[in-house]
Simulated scan of single mutants.
Amino acid sequence: MLTERQGERLPEWLDAVRKDDLPSLDILAAGIDRDAVAAGLPLLRNSGVVEGHVNRIKMLKRQIFGCTGVQLLRK
């Protein structure tokens, strides 16, 4: 569905997720905005690259948080 950009298959996938006994996927399926995801799946462009950069920057910020102190600032 994702690799072939077939948004019309989203409702049947959501129904299959609800029938399976996978609580994590069930929670995900319950929170999906069907119209927005179905409309976005066929699009050729996405924000994956940007989200990857944002994720990397957030990870770096988490790694260096608290590493600076008075001694380091004095150097």
Rank of each mutant, 00 (worst) to 15 (best):
M1Y: 11
M1W: 06
L2E: 13
E4Y: 06
E4F: 04
E4I: 04
E4W: 01
R5Q: 09
R5K: 14
R5A: 06
Q6I: 13
Q6L: 13
G7M: 10
E8F: 10
E8Q: 11
R9S: 12
R9M: 14
L10T: 05
P11N: 12
P11E: 10
E12I: 09
E12K: 12
W13L: 15
L14G: 08
L14I: 15
V17N: 05
V17T: 13
K19W: 05
D21K: 14
S24C: 08
S24I: 11
D26Q: 12
L28R: 03
A29H: 03
A29V: 04
A30W: 10
G31S: 10
I32C: 02
I32L: 13
R34P: 01
R34A: 09
D35E: 15
D35A: 15
A36G: 08
A36H: 14
V37G: 03
A38D: 04
G40E: 07
L41N: 02
P42K: 04
L43V: 07
L43E: 09
L43A: 12
L44W: 05
R45C: 07
N46G: 11
N46K: 01
S47K: 02
S47A: 08
S47Y: 00
G48N: 08
G48Y: 09
V50Y: 00
E51H: 06
E51T: 11
E51Q: 09
G52A: 10
H53D: 00
H53F: 14
V54Q: 07
R56N: 05
I57S: 11
M59D: 11
M59V: 09
L60N: 06
R62W: 00
R62G: 07
Q63A: 05
Q63G: 00
Q63V: 06
I64A: 07
I64T: 10
I64N: 02
F65E: 05
C67Q: 14
C67D: 13
C67G: 05
T68L: 14
V70A: 04
Q71W: 00
Q71Y: 03
Q71S: 04
L73N: 03
L73S: 01
L73E: 03
R74D: 02
